[in-house]
Amino acid sequence: MITKKDVQYIAHLSRIHLAENEAESLTKNLEGILTYIEKLKKLDVADVKPTSHVLPLENVFREDVVRESLSQNDVMNMAVEKNKGSFKVPQVIE
């Protein structure tokens, strides 16, 4: 079953930092939920097609024309940190 190490790994994939005690309680929770989910293995689905979406939709296209959109200024005003029209983040490249 799922271990605390697995949980820390999934947390990293999810980009969530977890405190030790949180990882412990989540391990217990997730184990319970995954055990419940095991019941799907009882069904034979070898010949069943998957459903990702309920409507019989095809690709939806529109004309490729320029339309009014949000202003860069308004969008940048929502950012926590910005610099000359860019989002500011910690240094990525050494």
């Binding site: 949980v7 947390a11 969530i16 930092h17 989540l26 997730l30 983040v89 910690p90």
Partner: peptide, 26 residues
């Protein structure tokens, strides 16, 4: 940058949100 993501999401999401994001990621 990864630290920023991980700490923002740690502070920003409650227990149930974390649980569901992690179950989905799994």
């Amino acid at each position: 940058l990864i630290d920023l993501y991980e700490e923002t999401r740690n502070q920003g999401f409650g227990q149930e949100a974390k649980r569901r994001i992690m179950l989905g990621t799994y």
